[in-house]
């Protein structure tokens, strides 16, 4: 059946079998390869995308169910070609990844958290990424990346006068 999806701000259409998951449709029909298949049964989180800003598993959603939502994939986060978002850059700064396979889902989960919370605690970060399995890092540098990104976003969004009471720097 014909499906119209709003992906990363653009409406895309394709003729799809109802049994095709959003994951497979993103990869095969819309050529967005940043969303990865890990388990295809909803446990590992490698296929995480945002639906109206909330992380969901794209392997647990058929593409025919996904109309009407704002779908964000990892390709939708970079502000421009070759340019990284603050969170993406933070993952590079702390080396919050190794093989890169879980990374898009992990970054989208972190993105959703930091849209909600300016000063996440370690526990909140752990809860937010706990649905995404990383086999390489043991999560330490991922948690640090999210903390680092939160700090940078908070500073970037805080008026300078509030950051340095003297106002001189």
């Amino acid at each position: 059946m014909m499906v119209d999806l709003r992906i990363n701000g653009t409406v895309r259409s394709a003729e799809l079998e109802p049994r095709k998951t959003l994951l497979d449709a993103l990869r095969e029909d819309f050529l967005l390869n940043g969303t990865h298949a890990g388990c295809e049964h909803g446990v590992c989180g490698a296929c995480t995308v945002l639906l109206d800003g909330e992380p969901v598993r794209s392997c647990l959603l058929f593409a025919v169910q996904a109309d009407g939502y704002e779908i964000t994939t990892i390709e939708g986060l970079a502000p421009a070609p070759g340019e990284l978002s603050v969170i993406q850059d933070a993952f590079c700064e702390t080396h919050g990844l190794q093989c890169g396979y879980c990374t898009p889902g992990m970054i989208l989960a972190a993105h959703a958290l930091l849209q909600q919370t300016v000063t996440p605690t370690r526990e909140e970060i752990v809860e937010a990424i706990s649905a995404n399995i990383c086999r390489c890092t043991g999560y330490g540098q991922i948690v640090e990346a999210v903390q680092f990104a939160a700090d940078r976003l908070r500073i970037a969004n805080t008026p300078r006068a509030l950051l340095s009471p003297g106002g001189s720097k």
Binding site: G45, E54, P55, V56, R57, L61, A109, S130, A131
Partner: peptide, 9 residues
């Protein structure tokens, strides 16, 4: 119940 992404759906 599950984890945040499964509770979202």
């Amino acid at each position: 119940v599950g984890h945040p992404p499964t509770r979202n759906r």
